[in-house]
């Protein structure tokens, strides 16, 4: 399968990435090559095969539901690139 530049732009938006025109073209070429190579899988008949989703044999390993404060408010803000005394700061969302 090969994709096109409109799809690349849509995927970039979904992934919250952006490319200039030159990079966009490079990404298109590379993705097309890789997708063509991935298309090898079509040669395998998997009609009767269930998808494999979980790799761990453990099911619902739960600990007791006890509330604990493992990270303080100050600690949670420690690594923020922009913050005030209480919140993470981001560019204005509402007009």
């Amino acid at each position: 399968m090969s994709t096109d530049i409109q799809t690349i732009r849509k995927i970039a938006h979904l992934a919250r990435l952006e490319f200039n025109e030159e990079k966009e073209q490079e990404m298109l070429q590379e993705l097309n090559k890789i997708l063509n190579w991935m298309d090898q899988l079509r040669a395998l008949d998997t009609e009767q095969v269930e998808p494999l989703i979980h790799m761990s044999e453990e099911v619902n390993v739960l600990r007791d539901d006890v509330a604990r404060n493992t990270t303080t408010h100050e600690e949670a803000l420690l690594n923020a690139p922009r913050k005030d005394s209480d919140y993470f700061r981001v560019p204005k969302v509402m007009e």
Partner: peptide
């Protein structure tokens, strides 16, 4: 498709 091939 890949999840199915993974099972195989």
């Amino acid at each position: 498709k890949a999840q199915k091939v993974r099972r195989l």
